[in-house]
Amino acid sequence: MPRFFFNVFDGRSLLDTDGVELPDDTLAREEALRIAGGAIAREAARIAANLVWNMEALDETGRCVYRINLSITTG
């Protein structure tokens, strides 16, 4: 089963060195959204202060299969 890695960039880099085994890219996308939702909920104040938050889901070869971009604009 392929392994996917979920890295977060929000003014600092949080690199996933363990990864998660998932059957395909579609389930990797669902997992990325679950992880992102939890991270955004837990870190809302810090993310709001930085105004940008990104997550990338990489496959075992390092290919980016999905990227979630969150930017907060004011005004």
Rank of each mutant, 00 (worst) to 15 (best):
V52H: 10
D25M: 09
V65D: 08
R67P: 05
F5V: 01
P23K: 07
D18I: 15
N50H: 15
E21A: 07
L14S: 14
G19D: 00
I72T: 04
R67G: 10
I35D: 01
R42T: 13
A57D: 03
T17W: 13
W53P: 01
T73W: 10
N7C: 03
T17V: 15
G37R: 09
M55C: 00
A28K: 03
R46C: 11
R12G: 14
S13N: 13
I35C: 00
R12S: 13
D25Y: 06
G75P: 06
A39D: 13
I47R: 00
G11D: 07
G75T: 02
D24H: 07
N7D: 15
S13C: 10
A48R: 08
P2M: 00
A32H: 00
V20A: 12
A57V: 05
I40H: 03
D16Y: 01
A41T: 11
I72F: 05
L51T: 07
R46Y: 09
G11Q: 00
T61L: 04
W53M: 02
L70I: 08
A48L: 10
E30G: 12
D16I: 03
I40A: 10
M1V: 07
L22V: 01
A57G: 06
I40S: 00
A32G: 07
A49D: 08
R42G: 08
V8F: 08
L22N: 03
R67S: 04
F4Y: 11
D24A: 06
N54Y: 08
A28G: 09
E30L: 14
T17Q: 15
I68E: 04
N54V: 11
G37S: 09
E30W: 15
R34P: 08
A49E: 08
R46N: 06
E43A: 13
D59L: 03
A57T: 05
R29T: 08
M55Q: 01
R29K: 09
D18E: 15
T74D: 12
A39N: 14
S71C: 09
A39E: 15
N50R: 15
L27R: 13
S71M: 00
F9K: 12
R42C: 12
A49N: 06
I68G: 00
E60V: 09
I40R: 08
W53Q: 05
P2A: 04
N54D: 13
V65Q: 01
M55P: 01
I40K: 00
D25V: 10
S13F: 14
R29V: 08
G75R: 08
L14M: 14
G75N: 06
A49K: 10
P2L: 02
A36N: 04
M55E: 04
A41G: 11
A44R: 12
V20D: 04
A28I: 03
E30Q: 14
R42D: 13
A41N: 10
E30T: 11
T26F: 15
R42M: 12
T61K: 06
R63S: 11
Y66C: 03
V65F: 05
G38K: 08
E56R: 11
N54H: 12
E60H: 02
M1P: 09
N54M: 13
S71T: 10
L51H: 09
Y66G: 05
R67Y: 06
E60A: 11
L22K: 03
V52T: 07
F9H: 11
